[in-house]
């Protein structure tokens, strides 16, 4: 891959990734007892935050529970949920932020978990479809989807419901047109839109 894609210029690539290997070796005491050739570089390095490389233990707060998952920085929140934490309610559709099947809430806001790195979701409150019901008591949005038959195959449904809950909470479901616009990040290939809209609007009316 050409370097110009990564930075906007033809900046030369260093011959090795010395800073990274150096950090790895020296851990938390960078800047101390350095050989002279590294001293100038080390002066800058002393202020650096910790760099995470390879699989490490990540701590995620999901549906009110603290969970630990060992994963590389490249693992998305979606993959961490589905493949490592057995929370398979959140679905993988396009994996590119285009379909909304992977919608979860982070600190109360709806986001695409396929474009969120698990490492960056640490310290935040994550809510998935599994976290909506209280025991056997379904969330009103789940009840409304059942009542209005807001699905056919059901694959987009967890994302639709998570998006619907946020949409109502944001105050963006006050009219049919507004709810359609603010639910447009969730695609349904079965075309259950009319019933999804009815479910979202019913919950908005009760809110």
């Amino acid at each position: 891959m050409p370097a110009d894609l990564v930075t906007p210029t033809d900046a030369p690539q260093p011959e090795d990734n010395s800073r990274r290997s150096f950090l790895k070796l020296s851990g938390g005491i960078v800047g101390l007892a350095l050989a002279p050739p590294l001293a100038a570089q080390a002066e800058r390095l002393t202020a650096y935050s910790k760099t995470i490389e390879g699989a490490t233990d990540l701590t995620l707060r999901i549906n009110g529970q603290v969970r630990t998952v060992r994963a590389e920085p490249r693992v998305t929140l979606l993959d961490a949920l589905r493949e490592r934490l057995d929370l398979t309610g959140t679905k993988k559709g396009c994996d590119h932020g285009q379909c909304g099947a992977c919608t979860v809430h982070i600190d109360g806001q709806r986001v695409n978990s396929c474009l969120t790195l698990a490492v960056m979701a640490q310290g935040k409150e994550i809510t998935t479809i599994e976290g909506l019901a209280k025991g056997d008591e379904l969330h009103p949005m789940q009840e409304a989807f059942l009542k209005h038959d807001g699905f056919q195959c059901g694959y987009c449904t967890p994302g639709q419901i998570m998006s619907g809950v946020a949409c109502v909470k944001e105050g963006h479901a006050k009219t049919d047109d507004q709810a359609r616009e603010w639910m447009s990040g969730n695609l349904c290939r079965c075309g259950a839109y009319a019933n999804i809209l009815a479910a979202v609007r019913e919950v908005a009316g009760k809110a």
């Binding site: 370097a3 990564v6 930075t7 900046a11 030369p12 690539q13 260093p14 990734n17 010395s18 800073r19 990274r20 570089q41 800058r44 202020a47 650096y48 932020g97 695409n112 474009l115 969120t116 790195l117 960056m120």
Partner: peptide, 16 residues
């Protein structure tokens, strides 16, 4: 400073 040492690194904000 990190990008000075590692010019092919990338900044990430929203990541979308």
């Amino acid at each position: 400073g990190i990008l000075k040492d590692q010019p092919t690194a990338a900044y990430i904000a929203g990541g979308t």
